[in-house]
Design a protein around this nucleic acid. Structure first.
Lengths: 162, 162
DNA sequence: GTCAGTGCAAACTTTTTGCAACTAC
DNA sequence: GTAGTTGCAAAAAGTTTGCACTGAC
């Protein structure tokens, strides 16, 4: 399940980042990094907090999570997204670039990959702007909701739904 | 400055939407729509609230702004973005599709257009997903910050900045 | 030993909700 | 007349901040 070599690599990258920027190498920071790199897909601060609270050895405060995640973003090890109400994060090292489909009805987020699209975006000529990364969010109706809607329309023709 | 025909058109679209969904056509709703369509670029709820508070004739509550803006999004007259802390909105009728450059340092958001990119995204084949709209956020360092950073590095080599 | 980093709780900001008053229909 | 809307204020949710204590250096 785990890929220990990736965890080691990101620890090393993080160490280099911390050293280069004069930050301390605290056990909390590494515990957070490790936990994040065990999560598949997106997570928010609260989920991360619960995950770490359950580990007996490392309970960290939310304040530390917020602080550390900023460092991880700057170290390019984590990406921040903002769909829905709370900010969502995901690990970014060694992940293939991917895009997001977001259902405007049920809120479900799906990832997909598309090399042509990635290439088109990354090679867009930008005036006076130094691209580091990007997020593409495609909104629409997922197949499940589409089907549900058709069902509803058959029986009931005038109810709204937001 | 204003294009009255656009405001009329969106009022009509909104009216149709309200009728179709059994919502009431309140003066507040039209006042909000009008105000939004006088704003160039992005705005957040607070800005909109202040704008409308200054108009003597139509002061609406924040709750109504939140309610109405959901209707406008559903009516496809407004788009919601989530950069920075608070949600940002913008009118969407009759606007050219555009993409966003976001400076990760100063937070400045710039729009740009690129037909090839638009075409590539809109014509991506999506499995079981019915695209309605999308947002592309490109992150990086704007030229102003880039220059500022170079200046700083010359004098001071070890300060962090988040 | 020092000061960055941590935990905790309080503060703050943004958004949602409950309820009485209002008004579009 | 009645039910959808509004405004207000309270509450909730997410994030930031202040401060005393701790531990990495």
């Amino acid at each position: 399940m785990d890929k220990p070599n990736i965890k080691d690599t990101v620890r090393q990258i993080f160490t280099e980042y911390l050293t280069a920027n004069g930050h301390r190498k605290t056990p909390e920071r590494y515990a957070i990094l490790d936990t994040i790199y065990s999560i598949e897909g997106h997570f928010d601060i609260d989920t991360l907090y619960s995950l770490m609270a359950n580990q007996e050895n490392f309970r960290v405060s939310r304040a530390t999570l917020y602080n550390t995640i900023i460092l991880l973003i700057n170290a390019r090890l984590v990406i921040k997204h903002q769909f829905g109400n709370s900010s969502q994060y995901e690990k970014s090292y060694n992940r293939d670039t991917h895009h997001h489909l977001i259902c405007t009805q049920c809120g479900k987020v799906t990832e997909f990959q598309n090399e042509e699209l990635r290439h088109a975006i990354e090679h867009t000529k930008l005036n006076r702007f130094n691209l580091t990364h990007y997020s593409l969010y495609i909104y629409g109706i997922c197949s499940k909701c589409e089907r549900a809607n058709k069902q509803k329309k058959k029986t009931n023709n005038h109810k709204k739904q937001i």
